[in-house]
């Protein structure tokens, strides 16, 4: 996985995954930095909505 940022492109390597309450926590390394991505129900809904919007846009073109 690769993250594009103002300090350049950085590799993101997933090292683990766990559940914390209602959130999914993706553990990883952003280069040498220990990092984590927390995904909540709202994020899943937002991503799903963006995907649906994308498909609709393509179909109406």
């Amino acid at each position: 996985m690769r993250v594009r940022s103002p300090i350049g492109d950085l590799p993101f390597r997933v090292t683990g995954i766990r559940r914390d309450g209602r959130e999914l926590v993706i553990l990883g390394e952003l280069g040498a930095w220990r990092s984590e991505v927390r995904v909540g129900a709202g994020d899943v809904k937002a991503v799903a909505q963006l995907a649906v919007d994308g498909v609709r846009k393509r179909l109406t073109r």
Partner: peptide, 12 residues
């Protein structure tokens, strides 16, 4: 300070 090697060239 950047968490990867490469400086302006980038890590890859």
């Amino acid at each position: 300070r950047i968490p990867v090697c490469g400086g302006v060239l980038g890590f890859d």
